[in-house]
């Protein structure tokens, strides 16, 4: 499993992460970013791409257990 964390003090809901990893990140009806913190290893490439493109560099990723 992967552990995804978002620094909410940085996040500005740009939604670039949603483009790269739609299974992990989404914008809700109020345009706030929501995400799944625990994700399958298969999402690694997508989540790393989301980490890369976040304009606020607010996403971090830990390789779990």
């Amino acid at each position: 499993m992967l552990k995804v964390e978002v620094d909410r003090t940085q996040c500005q809901n740009f939604g670039q992460c949603v483009v790269e990893a739609p299974n992990v990140f989404r914008l809700n009806s109020r345009d706030e970013m929501e995400y799944t913190p625990d994700v399958e290893d298969a999402e690694l490439d997508n989540v790393e791409a989301a980490v890369d493109v976040c304009p606020m560099q607010a996403i971090s990723l830990a390789l779990g257990r």
């Binding site: 809901n13 740009f14 939604g15 949603v18 483009v19 914008l27 345009d31």
Partner: peptide, 11 residues
Amino acid sequence: IGMRSEVLKHR
């Protein structure tokens, strides 16, 4: 300005 989902819709 704001309205992120609406912007994203046109990407």
